[in-house]
Structures are given as C-alpha cells and as structure tokens.
C-alpha cells in the first residue's frame, strides 16, 4: 500500500519536472478539456436532472406534517444537491466516464508502444500525456458540477410542480431561503479534489499497464473502482475538515 502510494507520488513528481513547452501543454489542455466537457455533458445533465427530480418527490413524500411549510421541500433539494449530490454523484459518474477513458487511452498507448515512442523522441511522456489530462479534469469537473447543481434544482422544480405536490412559488421561496454562498465554494473545492483523484488514479493505472488488450480492460475497471473509493473517502475527509 505504502509502496503504491510512493510510486504514485513519484509518478506525479515526474510529471511536473522537465515539462514540455507551455504552448504545447496549453494546446493539449484545450484538447483534453474539450473532450472531457463534450463527452460528459449529456450524461451529467441527465443524471443530475433526475436526481433533483427524485429528491424532490421523495422529500415531499416524507413531509406529510401540515405544520411544515411546502417551501421546505425546495430548501432541502437545494441543500442536498449543492452540498452533496451534485459534486459527489457527478464525480462518481465522471469516474466512470472520464476515468475509464483516461486509463483505457493511456493503457492502449502503453501496450502499443506509443508511450515508448514518445520517450525515445526525448519527450517526457507523463508531462505530455498525463499533466494536461489532470489539469483539464480539475478545470472541467467544477464546471460540470455547476451545471449539475443548476439542472438538479431545475429537475426538482419540474418534478415538484408538474406532479402537483407543490406550487411553483413554494419551491422558489424554498430555494431562496437561508442561502449560504460558502456551500457552493465547498462543493467546488470538492469537485477539484475529486477531479484530481479520478484523473490521477486513472492515469496512473493506465500508464503502468503491462501486457495486452485484456490488461487494458482490467486497468480501466481498476481505475473506476479505485477512483470511486477515493472519492467517497475524500468526501468524508473534506466534510469533516471543511464544514
């Protein structure tokens, strides 16, 4: 365990020493960021809208006490999605989407000797291949999380009003009650940390693939499971430290 952690740190260290020229890295960053954004926007949108909708319906189902105002439902949807569901669920979805594609892509490059080809040219392959992927993830995850927050709240609104459990004004009033801006900051910090974990772990798994196509598949799977575990652990630690 300690040995793996050590080699992971070394891997990250190699990535930031002897980097390529800024221009090259910038172009690679833009490429990767576009890829992550475009490929994930649809799934993140769908998942977060439905999570918002389901959260709203279920809270409404549990809140039968007439003394509690209906607007509480909107308030709770907002709190749950911003603090926990949007950053964490989005990151878990992205662990599946982005993590497996990073591990699979790098693994394939490794077994087909494309990484060796870069090294022979005298290019630092970790800095060229991995650094832009990690930075692009750390840039795109928070943006996707913001999108997820908005769509979850919208999903909740649509579910709540269309199913008739509450009036639109109630929901709007609810989501405007006692808003704490720091929660958004906290969620974005979480997104950046999760992005680093997902992309770093997946890149590490993919980069050190050995063998053939079978091992690339295994590396992808390991990347996703390890990323998800790391996200959940980090989620707990961040909540304990920052809240």
């Amino acid at each position: 365990m300690l040995k793996i952690f050590g080699s992971f740190v070394l891997f990250l260290y190699n990535m930031v020493t002897r980097t390529e020229r800024i221009r090259v890295l910038w172009n690679r960053f833009i490429e990767e960021a576009t890829l992550i954004g475009v490929n994930s926007i649809f799934i993140v949108g769908i998942v977060s809208a439905f999570i918002g909708a389901v959260t709203c319906i279920q809270i409404a189902y549990n809140l039968t006490n007439p003394l509690i105002p209906k607007s509480t439902i909107g308030y709770m949807v907002r709190e749950m999605t911003i603090l926990e569901l949007a950053p964490t669920i989005t990151s878990i979805v992205l662990a599946g989407k982005v993590g497996s594609s990073i591990a699979g892509g790098l693994g394939t490059m490794r077994i087909t000797e494309q990484i060796s080809a870069l090294e022979v040219m005298g290019i630092n392959s970790t800095s060229y291949l991995v650094l832009p992927r990690i930075l692009a993830s750390m840039f795109m995850f928070p943006l996707l999380v913001i999108l997820a927050m908005a769509l979850s709240i919208l999903g909740g609104y649509l579910a709540g009003t269309l199913s008739g459990v509450m009036a639109p004004q109630d929901y709007i009033e609810g989501i405007r009650t006692d808003f704490i801006p720091y929660n958004i900051v906290f969620a974005l910090i979480k997104a950046v940390v999760f992005a680093f974990l997902v992309s770093g772990i997946s890149a590490y798994k993919g980069y050190y693939t050995e063998g053939g196509a079978l091992e690339v598949g295994a590396a992808s799977t390991a990347a996703v499971t390890n990323s998800i575990i790391a996200i959940l652990l980090a989620d707990y630690v961040l909540a304990a430290v920052l809240l």
Binding site: T108, E113, V120, G122
Partner: peptide, 23 residues
C-alpha cells in the same frame, strides 16, 4: 546527465515492432 541523454535521444529515430503510430 539528463541533458546529455536528452541531446542523444533527439538524434534517435525508432521504428517499433508494432509501428507505434499515434492513433
């Protein structure tokens, strides 16, 4: 040293067994 190795590496061309083209 890294610099010297880098210098030499840049003069090396290599054709890999599986071609290793960037796909």
């Amino acid at each position: 040293k890294v610099d010297i190795r880098q210098e030499i590496r840049r003069k090396i061309g290599m054709l890999f067994q599986g071609s290793a083209l960037f796909d």
